[in-house]
Structure formats: C-alpha cells, structure tokens
Amino acid sequence: MQKSTIPPKEKPLPRGVYCPVISLYKPTARQEIDLDAMYKHCQFLVRGGQHGLVYQGTNGEAVLLSPEEKISVIKTVRKAVTDLGVPDYPIVAGISGQSTNESIQLAEDAAKAGASFALLLPPSFWAKSVTEEALLGFYRDVADASPLPVVIYNFPGVTSGIDLNSDDLSALASHPNIVGVKLTCGNVGKAVRLTSKFTPAQFSVYGGSSDFLFPTLEAGGVGCVTGMANVFPKSTSRVYDLWIAGKKEESKRLQDIVANAEWACKKSLALTKFAAGYFAGKKLGLTDPKTFFPRKPYLPANEKMQKWTIETMGVLLEEEEKIPDKVFGKVVNGTH
C-alpha cells in the first residue's frame, strides 16, 4: 500500500460532527419555508456544540426546494451564526443537481448566499448512463467551476444505487477543489481504505451517521454528518469531543446510547422530523407539529411510529440534558 503524495487542500472541511439540517415549513397549504424557524433551529444546533451545519442535503429535502428557497435559507443561517458571534462558522450547502450545469449554478448561488463548502451527490436520473467515465467527469467538471470546495456525498439509497467505490474516490481526491467525502453508504471498509492512503489535510473522510462515529474515528476518519443532531445536537457532538480529548471509554459509552437512539432516524426522515419537533420544538418556541412535517407529497409519521420513536430516541434524553450549551461572545434572543 502506498501513501498518497497529493498536496494538502487549500481549504479543508473542518473536522467534527455536522448536522444535515431539516427544512422547517409554515403550517399552510403550500408549506412555504419558515425562515424564522430555520434561524432559531440553526442557533440551537450551534449552541448544542455542532462543529458545522449542512443545508439542502437529504434531510433538508433538497429536491423539494426551489433555487430561490435554497438561497434564502443559506442567507438566513449565515445571519444566524453571525448574530451568535461566530461569523466564520462552517455552513455546507447541498449543490446536487441532475446535470453538471445545474450543480455549478447551485454552487454559485450557495457561495453568493454565504455558504462555506458544497456537498454533491452523483447524478442518478438516468442511472444506467452514469458510467465511471461520466461519474468522474461530473465531479471534476463541477469542482473545476465551483467557487466552493466540494465534499463528495455518497448515498446509494437516494441515487438509484449509484455507489462510488474507494477507487473512484481515490481518483477524485487528487482534485484540488475536492476536499472530502461523506460516506452514508455506511461502509467502514471503504473509510479505512481511504484513510490509509490520504491524510485529512489531503482528503477528509466523514461517516454518514453518528451510530458509527466512534468506529469512523478509530479508522482514521475525522467526523460524521448525522440527522440525529437535529434532535440531540449535544450528545452527537459529545461523542466526538470525548474521543478527541482522549476519553475513549466515555466516548464509547455515549456512542452505544447514540447508536440505539439513532435507529429511529434510519426508518424515515418523517421520524427524524417528528423527533426534532417533539424533543426540541418547545425549546425553540416551535410548538405547531406541522412546522416539522415533511413537504408534500410525503406524509408525517403515523401515531404508532411516533410512539415508537419517542421510546427509541428517549434513551438519549437524560444524556442530552446533562450537557451544557456552548456559550459565545454575542447573546441574541433567537429571533431576527
């Protein structure tokens, strides 16, 4: 096995736990984006210790949002972190389009709106046409034109089974504007193959959920992107913080609880959104359950699954309540 000799990236994605933030809507027939709710939720997540935030990914229902809505959300959350006193806080924007041109346009929009990095799924509408040549060309062309550093997003479950293997990712890692990968495929072996070749400065490897964060870190990865953080931001980031501090036994103990709680998030986005409303909504002053509904045509969780979610994720509530909020230099009341 040979270590890579590619140069370090000019702007690597900072290490840590990132929340792929859900989209929150007004309780109206058209479910317009609720920017005030997004502002409050953003500050809640940052105070909860998240090391960065991802908007307009899968949990953000990116395919259901218009380009204009995406821009307004990024502008809103950049203001939220600036008002909180951390203007340079990492904001990652999803730029996944079905064409190279669309993805480049989304990257340009995100950069103008205030995003720091871009997250990119492979195209998948005509899955049989996405050959290896087309796939590598897509990422290179978008990265060539993107004003933001690009993080590859590998999630076969939402891309008609298209799965970048470790050879594909190794080939793309040499691009100067491709800085890392989010492995929602859950393939720890793939993570090990990549971390054995590349340093984090060359190409960073992130797990796609917090239920295998500890193994990801042990394997040489540098963090994760986890929907669970929408509900329990403190506990998910704490697994990482304890590991970094060398408190591995404590980290593993908390990881075990997090992994069991995250099982609900694996079932559906509707359950993640319900849990965010149930466990965090009151803290944010967001008490209308419809704020946390998926956007139509997708449906909210039924009563049976809601009850199961409360029981499954509730195992983490005590841990979450024990962890204090992060305090920043500027205090705001959570509104515009």
Rank of each mutant, 00 (worst) to 15 (best):
Q105T: 11
G329T: 09
K128C: 03
R253A: 15
G281P: 04
G329A: 10
Y139V: 06
V46A: 04
A80Y: 07
T131W: 10
T309L: 02
A107E: 04
I257A: 14
F279T: 00
E133I: 08
S99H: 08
I310E: 10
A219I: 07
D325F: 12
A201Y: 05
V181D: 00
F203D: 01
W243A: 06
A143E: 09
K128L: 07
V188P: 03
A275S: 09
K75R: 15
V17N: 05
E319I: 05
T5D: 14
L183G: 05
V327P: 01
A173C: 07
V86K: 00
K26Y: 13
K112A: 15
S129V: 03
Y206V: 02
I33C: 08
D88Q: 05
S237I: 06
G277Y: 03
A270C: 09
K290Q: 15
L35P: 11
T5N: 13
S129Y: 14
T199E: 02
A143I: 11
V239G: 06
G48C: 05
G94Y: 09
I310A: 04
Y25K: 07
L183R: 01
N302I: 03
D168K: 02
G16A: 08
Q56N: 15
A113P: 10
V86T: 08
I33P: 04
V63D: 12
P90L: 04
N260G: 15
P200I: 02
L299W: 11
F274C: 01
L120K: 08
I22L: 14
S66R: 10
T226N: 11
Y89E: 05
L286T: 06
E133T: 14
I33L: 15
P8I: 03
W263N: 11
D83C: 04
E69I: 13
L121W: 12
T28P: 07
T159L: 06
E32R: 13
L106Q: 12
S204M: 04
Y206R: 00
Q98W: 13
A107S: 15
K283F: 09
S237L: 05
S146G: 06
G329C: 05
I74L: 14
G137C: 06
D36R: 10
L284P: 01
V332D: 10
T312V: 04
L183D: 05
D109K: 07
F279E: 00
G161P: 13
V63H: 15
T312S: 03
L286R: 02
A264L: 10
E320R: 00
G246K: 03
G220D: 02
I310N: 03
E311K: 11
D109C: 11
G94M: 09
G223V: 05
K26W: 12
V205R: 00
T312C: 07
K70T: 13
T309A: 11
A245Q: 13
L121P: 09
S99P: 09
K304H: 11
K11W: 06
L269P: 11
V63T: 15
